[in-house]
Design a protein around this nucleic acid. Structure first.
Length: 168
DNA sequence: CGAATGATCCGA
DNA sequence: CGGATCATTCGA
């Protein structure tokens, strides 16, 4: 479940330094059954990662400017991924920097398509477990930036109530 | 509301 | 190949 990523820590520990942030907003994309997913039309060179093993990163370039990161997560044999939309800074970021939005988050971590496909348990870029967020603190709603017909009946965006890293 | 900005993918 | 299409952000 996408909501289980909330509270986990995204960590970059490599040549550029060490940066960490706590995930507070995510969105689920269900692959070939979900018209809003990049995986909807089957695997391509860009999206094949989403048909591979869970726990890897899928990074794509949005609007020619922003690198957005997903965590591959799905049942065996079915594509799927969770878009990381917002986080609260923990370590390594300039004071006052906001990570509220998938593009801003990607830029803050210095991501690029070179990061697409990396194993998040073995790379400089990692996802660390953290205590689960209390269910009462989790809100859900329609996904952002896609046709309303694809999100109205699928409220697959989850965020931590009141967190400053939530987008919009 | 619209521009910025470029990889990706489909159709011809 | 050409062009439409973006899982976005910011500023007028």
């Amino acid at each position: 479940m996408a909501r289980e990523l909330l509270g986990k820590v995204l960590l970059y520990d490599g040549p550029e330094g060490r940066r960490a942030a706590r995930l507070v907003e995510v969105e689920a994309y269900h692959g070939t059954r979900d018209p809003a997913s990049h995986a909807f039309r089957g695997p391509t060179p860009r999206t094949s990662v989403m048909f591979g093993r869970p726990g890897h990163a899928y990074v794509y370039l949005s609007h020619g400017v922003w690198y957005c990161m997903n965590v591959v997560a799905h049942e065996p044999g079915v594509a799927g991924a969770v878009l990381l939309r917002g986080a609260d800074p923990l370590e390594g970021f300039a004071d006052g920097l906001r990570l509220s939005g998938p593009g801003l988050l990607g830029r803050a971590f210095g991501l690029s398509t070179a990061d697409s496909g990396v194993d998040l348990t073995r790379s400089a870029l990692q996802l660390r477990d953290a205590p689960a967020v209390r269910p009462r603190l989790i809100a859900r709603g329609p996904r952002v930036g896609i046709a309303e017909s694809m999100t109205a009946a699928k409220p697959w965006r989850f965020w931590v109530r009141g967190a400053s890293g939530v987008s919009r």
